[in-house]
Computed example of a mutant assay.
Amino acid sequence: MAQLAQFTTPVDAVVSRMRTLDRTLPERDGLAVFNRVYLAVTEEVDRRLDAGTFPDPEAAITLDVRFAERYLTVAEEGCPPACWRPLLQFRRHPGVRPLQFALAGINAHIGHDLALAVVDTCRTLRCEPADLEDEFDRVGDLLVSMEEAVREDLMPGPDLLQIADPLTHLLGSWSLERARDATWSAARALWALRGLPDLAEEFADRLDAAVGFAGRILLTPLPD
């Protein structure tokens, strides 16, 4: 593996692009809500890379950048895959809460983009998914901790969180840890299918559609 210094600029570049989005998007825009969450995650990954906490910094940085670029393509250029369409369609809906926007973005990015980013990284580094498992798990653990912080920060006050509250019921049906486990399986399947491009494309399209369906449910407008 090459030295870390050769790979720091791409991470800085994606952080810079997310900061630009943070300055330009309206604060309550649904995409802006997710962008703030993802910016915080990427900045933390960058700090941990600087601290040397990843066993293979080249693999971690390549995965981080390939992952981020898929989101940034959606945010900056449009033409989103199915998994991102619900968030972009509902991003200004007054009946959707900020926490819903944040989790719908996490769902799209983890459930679909991360699997494809693992495959992208394997192609770039000429390695197998198993060679990235440590980096995948470390980034995943960070995302889980950030999701917990997001829920605490964006969840309404405890007086609104009765067991029958629609938001409690809706958000309790989705788990980042389950999504992360499914993503790892999807990445391994896509890599195994790389010699069968038609089948790989069909698998990726169905993954995209399924993640988009889950996102649409997460963004169900709720009464005040």
Rank of each mutant, 00 (worst) to 15 (best):
G140K: 03
V139W: 02
Q89C: 13
F54P: 11
V144Y: 12
A117D: 04
G215Q: 00
L207T: 01
T124R: 13
E27Q: 15
R48N: 09
H169C: 15
P223R: 07
A108V: 10
V33S: 14
G140N: 03
D131F: 07
V150M: 01
G172V: 04
L103S: 02
F7H: 14
P129S: 02
T220E: 07
A60H: 11
C127L: 06
P156H: 01
S185H: 13
R17S: 08
Q100V: 01
R97E: 09
V45C: 11
D29R: 07
F213W: 10
C79S: 13
L171E: 08
A164C: 09
A82C: 00
L143Y: 03
A179C: 05
D131Y: 02
D134C: 12
F90Y: 12
A102C: 07
A186G: 11
E77G: 11
A108Y: 07
V139N: 01
P55T: 09
G157F: 05
F34P: 01
A51V: 04
V41K: 11
V37M: 15
F136P: 02
R47W: 12
F136Y: 12
G212Q: 02
A82L: 00
L39N: 07
H169Q: 14
A209L: 14
Q89K: 14
Q162S: 13
D120M: 12
T24L: 15
L87R: 06
A164Q: 10
A51I: 12
T124Q: 14
G195Y: 15
Y71L: 08
R85M: 08
T9S: 08
Q6Y: 13
M1K: 12
T168W: 11
Q6C: 05
W191R: 15
M18V: 03
F90A: 08
C127S: 10
A102E: 12
A130M: 07
A59V: 08
D56S: 13
D205T: 12
P197V: 03
V14Q: 05
L132N: 00
C79R: 10
D134L: 13
S16C: 11
E147N: 01
